[in-house]
Design a protein around this nucleic acid. Structure first.
Length: 300
DNA sequence: AAACAAACCTGTGCGC
DNA sequence: TGCGCACAGGTTTGTT
């Protein structure tokens, strides 16, 4: 569920309410949430540690600790991080609870930080960042982060311009660009007027300009709105508040509706690369060379 | 290199 | 109301 804007919103909550505090105790309920290492490794790695910073790379939350280790949390589909008062009743599927010490300097009372995750795809890991390549290889291999790395149009063109992948699967590929998921990929392609089936290597400079602008403006606007919360309200921030960017979605979950941009097309929903994809057939006209199933390639 | 399916789990919404 | 099935924001792995 959570993509870059949602994870960034959570990161900001951590920055504000959790950074600088010591973890006095840790409870791990379900072992699956800490499967990367073990229950004991997470407990030992966090007990007595102080969280120095709250960082994010793609959809990964990275929190350096004063022990030299880093606490990584990935929410995957249904994970949540919630701040609560000590002893408060925990929601179902609360798998990890960290007891945070007070921070009198900032007027913060003791609190609990909960990792809640119904589907248990998410995970909590304590690792040594010096060995990120072996301990968390996927983090080491993440592509450009649109906000952290602030890539230019040329950076974007360099990273995706020689790929023969279709744009929808490419945008959600974390090795290429980190942080974009199914919702924002659809929104970005629509704003850039690029059909999801367009092969990346056929794009022109003007397309990269449009994609770059769409990516940056949509992601920053979504962060400003606190992310997108869908009907099930699975995504909420640290304080349990939903975001409002879903109100600005132009194509995602709008199949069958008239396009709000051109007023002519009707939003379609089709699987691309196995993911349901929403687009306006008028705004995002398929161009020649973009979408043939057997892509003829001149030998060279 | 790229496409595709399956796997990991649970909850929800829909058609009947 | 109840049942069964399709589907869901992510990512990895194994095959073509």
């Amino acid at each position: 569920m959570p993509e870059l804007p949602e994870v960034e919103t959570v990161r900001r909550g951590l920055d504000r309410f959790v950074v600088g505090r010591r973890i006095d105790a840790v409870e791990v309920g379900r072992e699956r949430s800490v499967r990367r290492t073990s229950r004991q490794a997470v407990i030992d790695g966090l007990n007595g540690a102080t969280i120095l910073r709250a960082e994010r790379r793609g959809k990964y939350l990275l929190n350096p600790l004063d022990t030299g280790d880093t606490l990584m949390i990935h929410l995957r589909m249904t994970g949540q991080l919630l701040l609560a008062e000590p002893g408060a009743e925990r929601p179902p599927h609360t798998h990890v609870a960290m007891h945070l010490a007070a921070d009198p300097a900032r007027g913060l009372e003791p609190a609990e930080l909960w990792f809640v995750d119904a589907r248990t795809f998410g995970e909590v890991v304590v690792f040594d960042p010096e060995f990120v390549e072996t301990e968390l290889p996927e983090v080491a291999k993440l592509g450009l982060d649109p906000l952290v790395d602030a890539p230019t149009v040329t950076d974007l063109a360099t990273v995706i311009g020689r790929r023969h992948m279709r744009m929808k699967p490419l945008l959600v590929d974390q090795h290429v660009i980190a942080g974009i998921g199914n919702i924002y990929a659809d929104e970005i392609l629509h704003r850039a007027r690029v059909h999801p089936d367009t092969v990346a290597s056929t794009l022109r400079r003007k397309d990269f300009v449009l994609l770059h602008d769409a990516m940056l403006s949509i992601l920053t606007a979504a962060v400003r709105a606190g992310g997108s919360s869908l009907k099930d309200n699975t995504y909420v921030d640290l304080m349990g508040e939903g975001g409002s960017y879903q109100e600005d979605h132009r194509v995602y979950a709008r199949a069958g509706e008239r396009c709000m941009t051109c007023g002519r097309g009707v939003i379609r929903r089709l699987p691309f690369g196995g993911r349901s994809t929403h687009f306006c057939p008028v705004c995002q006209r398929e161009k020649r060379g973009g979408a043939s199933p057997t892509r003829p390639r001149a030998a060279r």
